[in-house]
Design a binder for these strands. Structure first.
Length: 550
RNA sequence: GGCGCUGUAGCCAAGUGGCUAAGGCAGUGGAUUGCAAAUCCACCACGCGUGGGUUCGACUCCCACCGGCGCCUCCA
């Protein structure tokens, strides 16, 4: 009922948006999605510590959250999505010292890298990107409140959170405070108990520092998220996400800080994505396999071993990978698996994803060729805002869908698949399952085009063309929810060289067509085989020949 | 050692206490084509790590075992 107050007047919409269920790490089960405020969703994703270039593993969370936001918006929610940038920490200090530039310069450089990669993957739904260093006052205020409430104590220029005061500590990661080692190092001597963690760290000479009631220093790792999420989303917000590896200690500590400070739960749903691994046989992401030394003495190791992706192992070159495979392909690859599962990242999987995506691209081209209408929204803002996603989900059910798209066998099938797709998404954002409905939809549309003779200009009827266009609009709509099929895949189509290639191809195609007309198949095949060797395939259609570069 | 995840066809990957276990890649046969390509159609796991148990019935629940992995220190 809380979510019932969305703008739509359609009662079916209420019911269906209440069908969303989310796996909550805190309770270790799927729960019905109920927002704090009716019709509104606040979500926070832990972003990167910007001390080095991002790698593909950093993209999993943003891509899935971008998709979640798209879906929630599609369902009619007003969504505010926050991704924090951690721009102060030990590694940043180390990097700046090593490179002889300021910490802020390192942070700016790496933040730009991160954002550029997000953009390439179509992640463009983020509303706030707060940086820790822009929120020092808020952080200090937060720490002071914790001290006032006796949950934190200052000790020799540091401030620690007193874990023993929080009887609920450990719920998220399902572990007890006593069992924790806690941070070691020289700061340990200033703690009351070993599992206490730093809220504020005193500065050593030469380190970046801010004034505080406890002297010069900088915030601890966890406090920024508590402070910034409260500032933007409030004391209790709906969804908090991050990689599985953040559950402990980061999210456990965040949770403790916020709950103890406010006396209310911090988050309704804790979501954690699985970690990505690098295929070591074919893929190169993880660098050399570190396990070879111990295991390949006797038997040959399995070829499909995978290695952890991390910056320390030399993972990187994400921009190059995106350039090689295209961002849409990588996004599609990520979305084909469930967000909570481990994804093995490698060339093999990306090749396959590329093959699969091509089927959609061909259908889209087929549509543009036959209808003469563009499939993609040509406006520069396409996909940039979530406005076009505002579309009540459940127009599928019953009348809405038919009213909007008309009747017909194809649309009946498309409507059925759309419902199936939405059901998958309601169930903890099962993007992998939803994609299968898109494939089914593509096949249904292709079948329709084949059977209704739309390839033949003479047989085209307005009714069939309309139905074709309607079906494609549903495909576009559902694709957009996943952040797919929003923009023309090949960029640079207006380059002179691209134009020239196309003109040359038209010339070859004409020569071959002439040869075929005179039944000179040897020449025709010589042209085609020669092109095949260049990775170009031809397709002879009723209306002429088209070409495609592999 | 503690906490947790996972094992579905050649590969990737959804999913359900009970009709024929999604979808993709690869493969096979057919329609189509001058031949192809693309597209469509059909086929492709009598079985869902192994062994028990619960149940009228389990791939789905429980136990054990075997295998893979994560966290417990920084990590998306």
């Amino acid at each position: 009922m809380a979510t019932a107050t969305i703008t739509s007047t359609d009662s079916a919409t209420e019911k269906d948006t209440c069908n969303i269920r989310i796996y909550n790490t805190l309770t270790r089960q799927k729960e019905p999605f109920r927002t704090v405020q009716p019709g509104k969703v606040g979500m926070y994703l832990c972003g990167p510590t910007v001390y080095a270039e991002a790698h593909i593993g950093h993209m999993v969370g943003p891509v899935i959250f971008d998709t979640i936001k798209r879906f929630l918006v599609y369902c009619g929610f007003e969504v505010t999505w926050v991704v924090n940038i951690t721009d102060v920490d030990d590694k940043l200090i180390a990097s700046s010292t090593k490179r002889g530039i300021t910490m802020s310069q390192v942070a700016t450089e790496m933040t730009m890298d991160y954002l550029a990669n997000l953009q390439s993957l179509g992640v463009n739904q983020i509303d706030h990107l707060p940086r820790a260093t822009d929120n020092i006052d808020e952080i200090i205020r937060f720490i002071e409140e914790l001290i006032q409430r006796n949950y934190a104590y200052a000790s020799g220029g540091d401030v620690f959170f007193d874990v023993t005061r929080d009887t609920d500590y450990g719920q998220l990661s399902n572990r007890t405070a006593e069992s924790q080692q806690g941070e070691g190092g020289e700061a340990a001597s200033r703690k009351r108990s070993s599992s206490d963690f730093a809220l504020w760290k005193s500065a050593k000479p030469g380190e970046p520092a801010w004034d505080s009631p406890w002297g010069q220093g900088r915030p601890g790792w966890h406090i920024e998220c508590s402070a910034m999420s409260r500032r933007i989303l409030g004391k209790t917000f709906d969804i908090h996400g991050g990689g599985l590896d953040l559950i402990f200690p980061h999210h456990e500590n965040e949770l403790a800080q916020s709950r103890c400070c406010h006396g209310v739960p911090m988050v309704r749903y804790w979501m954690h994505n699985g970690l990505m691994r690098a295929a070591t046989s074919a893929g190169k992401v993880g660098g050399r396999s570190e396990r070879d030394s111990e295991s390949d003495a006797t038997e040959a190791p399995q070829a499909d071993v995978s290695a952890k992706i991390s910056r320390s192992k030399g993972a990187g070159g994400l921009a190059k990978q995106i350039e090689q495979y295209t961002g849409e392909r990588m996004r599609f690859f990520l979305l084909r698996s469930h967000y909570r599962s481990t994804i093995v990242f490698g060339d093999e999987g990306l090749e396959e994803a590329g093959q699969a995506l091509t089927a959609f691209y061909r259908l889209i081209q087929r549509f543009e060729r036959i209808s003469g209408e563009p499939f993609y929204d040509s406006s520069s803002k396409a996909g940039e805002s979530s406005r076009e996603l505002h579309y009540a989900t459940t127009r599928t059910a019953g009348n809405h869908f038919i009213r909007e798209h008309g009747q017909g066998e194809l649309m009946a099938e498309v409507g059925r698949l759309r419902t199936s797709y939405l059901e998958k998404m309601y169930d903890d954002f099962n993007t992998g399952g939803a994609v299968s409905d898109l494939f089914d939809m593509a096949r249904a549309i292709n079948r329709f085009v084949d059977q209704s003779g739309l390839e033949d200009a003479k047989k085209r009827t307005n009714e069939n063309l309309t139905q074709f266009a309607s079906a494609m609009s549903v495909l576009r709509e559902l694709g957009a929810v996943l952040g797919l099929f929003i923009k023309q895949p090949r960029k640079g189509a207006n380059d002179d060289s691209v134009k020239l290639v196309d003109q040359l191809m038209q010339l070859l195609i004409q020569l071959r067509a002439d040869a075929r007309t005179t039944k000179n198949f040897a020449t025709a095949d010589a042209i085609r085989n020669g092109l095949t060797k260049l990775g170009i395939s031809l397709q002879d259609l009723k209306e002429g020949t088209i070409w495609e570069k592999a």
